[in-house]
Design a protein around this nucleic acid. Structure first.
Length: 423
DNA sequence: TCTGGGGTCCTAGGACCC
DNA sequence: TCTGGGGTCCTAGGACCC
């Protein structure tokens, strides 16, 4: 089989490493970076990990430790991290023709064609260290999942000096029995438990699992993981970033929201931030959803969660439209049974995103059905398709026909399905 | 009035990732 | 008192149409 080496390079404790670039006094001391709301630790230096600070640990539970050990604490600075990330990617690009950005601190790299892959990876590491100041580790294998395994092993065993090449089957057979099944990319807590229940505890054991059984236990996703562990690539290197499908603005509230006005304010703020984000990315949204729920960490208190969606017609990135839609959704989800709920989280989700330039023609504005707008929309269709055409509002309703009668339109009438697809 | 199957689209929920 | 935020993909089941 023709096996192309894929590398994954990830930055060590990325947010912490980024902060350290600008402050040498942070070297060799415990450092943590907090989540958006300063709620919990999302990045930890090795020293902080050694003190037992866990990923996602709430700040209020570790105040003691911070005090006692003089741990340096930072709020997250995503603008900075994004900039550092871009510089790291630029450096990778000097070492391979093909880079897939997987996350803010990880890239998959095409490593085929290099005679000494390990030396090449070491040279790349040194370059990133020198030019950007970030330590990275590299795993190499014939599939993404195996490369992630290699990276994981290199991360935990200093003897590899930050680079492990698992293209060699003999080496893979020696090392994979030592990788816990839960450490494999794509195996989360649920699947780990299911696998352990049937005696599969390591990467080596998972790789030998019958495909049919894998599919039955964990759908095609698990089946792919097994194939990938066998060295058969199922996930290709994807250089072009796929268009985004949805986006979200959600926040936990420091003080619970118990009355509707307070929730209204939160939803309003999130919706206008969401509108900003849309415009930043030159997108419009077709669907808006609001969500809010009570504190799941307090099951002793009355619980409520609500999610309500609405279609945005026309598709929009207009702050006013989004705020308006979000408020309507929130009102629809607000509890009516009079219990004293304390909401601690609210959010606005946007879906069915399209680039602004691809915004489809709006034929009927259902919120404000004015004949002038209707005729303007039809004129836009005519102009676009170069023929006299009238489009039905939808098949199976008489509304379009009624409109046609009302306006005595001289235009032709065409089924919506017969029109060219507007993308 | 009863009986059928096939296809598509949509949605909710689960699981996972960084 | 205080417990992150932002994503993707897959499946099952219902609605609807022919």
């Amino acid at each position: 089989m023709n096996r192309h080496p894929i590398a994954i390079s990830d930055s060590k404790n990325f947010y912490v490493s980024a902060e350290r670039i600008f402050d040498v006094s942070l070297a060799n001391v415990p450092v943590i970076v907090l989540s958006n709301n300063d709620g919990c630790a999302v990045a930890r230096s090795d020293e902080a990990k050694a003190l037992g600070i866990r990923m996602g640990e709430p700040l209020h539970l570790i105040r003691d430790k911070i005090e006692r050990h003089g741990i340096q604490v930072f709020s997250s600075n995503y603008t900075l991290y994004a900039d550092i990330s871009r510089r790291v990617v630029d450096t990778y690009a000097d070492f391979t023709p093909s880079v897939e950005i997987y996350s803010i601190d990880e890239c998959f790299l095409d490593f085929s064609g290099f005679r000494d892959r390990e030396a090449h990876a070491q040279a790349m590491r040194a370059a990133v260290r020198r030019r950007v100041g970030i330590p990275v580790r590299v795993g190499i294998a014939s599939s993404k999942t195996l490369a992630k395994c290699a990276n994981e092993i290199a991360k935990k065993n200093p003897i590899f000096h930050g680079v492990l090449d698992l293209m060699d089957e003999g080496l893979a057979r020696r090392l994979l029995p030592k990788v816990p099944v839960g450490d494999i990319w794509g195996i989360g807590r649920r699947t780990e438990a299911k696998l352990k229940a049937i005696g599969i505890n390591t990467a080596e054991e998972l790789r030998n699992m019958p495909l049919r059984q894998a599919r039955q236990l964990g759908t095609v996703v698990l089946e792919r993981t097994v194939l990938e562990l066998q060295g058969e690539p199922c996930l290709s290197l994807d250089e072009v970033e796929p268009p985004r499908k949805g986006m979200a603005v959600t926040r936990s509230a420091s003080t619970p929201m118990t009355d509707f006005d307070t929730l209204f304010q939160a939803v309003t703020a999130h919706a206008s931030r969401a509108a900003e984000k849309l415009r930043q990315h030159d997108l419009v949204a077709g669907t808006l959803t609001t969500i809010f729920h009570t504190n799941k960490h307090r099951p002793d208190r009355p619980q409520w969660s609500a999610a309500r969606s609405t279609k945005l017609t026309p598709m929009s990135s207009d702050t006013f439209d989004l705020v308006d839609a979000a408020r309507r959704c929130a009102r629809a989800g607000w509890p009516k049974d009079g219990k004293p709920y304390a909401f601690t989280k609210a959010g606005v989700l946007l879906d069915d995103l399209l680039p602004t330039s691809d915004r489809p023609l709006t034929l009927f504005d259902t919120m404000r059905p004015k004949s002038a707008q209707l005729m303007a929309a039809l004129d836009a269709v005519n102009e676009r398709f170069g023929k006299k055409t009238m489009v039905l509002a939808s098949e199976g309703t008489s509304r379009a026909w009624d409109l046609r009668a009302t306006h005595r339109s001289p235009r032709y009438t065409t089924r919506i399905n017969d029109l060219p697809v507007v993308k």
